[in-house]
Computed example of a mutant assay.
Amino acid sequence: MSTSIDSSQINELAMSIADRLFIQVGNWNLYLGDAGLAKDLAIECQANFDQGANVAARKGLEGIQVKLGGGITRLPLSKLIPPNQFFDLEEILEPYCR
């Protein structure tokens, strides 16, 4: 099983993530495409495709550090998305992890 995909596949994955996953702040949803985080998450997940969608999703979300307050605070993306979004990311990653 190959763990690397080409740049067009990374872009395709990023587009799938961009308008489906979001950061939730109060009652406000900021989609990862609008936040400029979709491609970073796609690349981070891609590094772990050989370990399956569950591990790739978890490590990807933990690996992206989101700057808040002008960079004063950083939180992993996993702390900023609603719990059900993890399963959405797994579903998006599944075809790439086969």
Rank of each mutant, 00 (worst) to 15 (best):
G60F: 03
P82A: 05
L30H: 11
N27C: 06
S8R: 05
G70D: 08
K79L: 14
N48T: 09
G71S: 04
I64S: 04
M1R: 11
L30G: 11
I81Q: 06
Q24W: 00
V66N: 02
P82V: 02
R98D: 13
E44A: 08
K59E: 15
L32E: 09
L80E: 02
N84D: 15
K67S: 06
G52L: 01
P95L: 02
F49M: 04
G52E: 02
E90I: 13
C45A: 09
Q46T: 14
S8P: 02
L37P: 04
A42E: 02
S16E: 15
S2A: 14
I5V: 03
S4P: 09
G36W: 04
K39I: 04
Y31Q: 10
A47V: 13
G71T: 01
A47C: 08
W28N: 14
P82G: 07
A47Q: 13
G63Q: 03
G60P: 00
G71N: 01
E44M: 05
P83W: 10
G63E: 01
P82E: 07
A53W: 05
A47K: 15
F86Q: 13
P95T: 04
P76H: 03
S2C: 10
L75V: 15
G60H: 02
C45S: 15
G63F: 01
L93W: 02
